[in-house]
Amino acid sequence: MSDPILFTRDLWVRVHDPNGGGSPIAVVRGANIELQRGATTCLVGESGSGKTVLMRALLGISGARPGVTAGTAWARPDGSEFPVPLVGPRKRWRGRALPSLRPGWAGYVFQHPSHSLDPLLRVGDQVGASVTIAHSGLTPAAVKRRVLHWLETVHLPNPEAVAQLFPHELSGGMAQRVAIAIALATEPDLLVADEPTTGLDWSVRRDIVDLLGELCRARGMSLLLISHDFQVVEHIADQLYVMFRGELVEDGPRRAFFEPGPGSHPYTRELQARSRALEEGSSPPRLHLAEQPTSSGAGCVYAHRCPWIREPSPERSALGERCRSVRPPDFRPSSDHRVRCIAVGEPT
């Protein structure tokens, strides 16, 4: 049943401690991710929890060179498995020559269009550059035809004119569409979008999200969407991963999150409650922020903030002791739903 296009096994990413400590700190801790073919997977989590780092590491985007990585990632763009070069482009992997992935098998759309667009090149040329990644040796006329095709695919009015523009002449929504067109032009099997709607107004946000959904359906493409925006996630996700301080604390299909069911991770509940409160205009529940997270890495990553172990009852404080010292085991309410929390596993 499971046909992932990309999966990782116990992926760790460590960076040097910015506070000047000697040992590197783990920003991604043992991530197991499976992106199903043709599905939309959403990765949600706090800012700074390591979402972007995880995405960059598992796609081997240069520029993001982790200090140390461990674990493996495999891509299966067409059914056969390829190891993903975890630390940037590499020729060899574990002593073997890498069976190379098709260049452009994955496309990226970044948070801000300006991160994906080159200010000095015309839109047409940038899309054209992506086209030639997928198809080398095309005639200029053929490249142009494809450029116009991709600009049309992302619903840009008057593609001929848009192709002649420079990025600064585009509005935010248009620029993001161009960024998507550039990503699509390599004909990727997997599209990764890192907060593609931040800073855009609601009407553009809706257009972009609908466009991404439509493209996935029409082209059978898989989508990994990183977002803070629970409304977007609720609208589009098939599968969700929740990240907190480098750890994937919960994952499961959409229904596990948006329909009442057996338990969710306390952090997921916090996210949901607070975004729902904002939506409804009520005061969001208070956070427990007094305690600082420990840096040792033992225990549950959420323990310093978890409201469950702060309820004044003896069982709960006994639970808190364990939460702070043992790494919580995975609990599976159903075969495709996983929660890393002691309390969810042993309801009291």
Binding site: H16, S47, T52
Partner: peptide, 14 residues
């Protein structure tokens, strides 16, 4: 962005 810029920037310095 923040974490990734972190290792590219801080790594070299200090």
């Amino acid at each position: 962005m923040t974490l990734s810029s972190l290792w590219t920037q801080r790594h070299r310095q200090d």
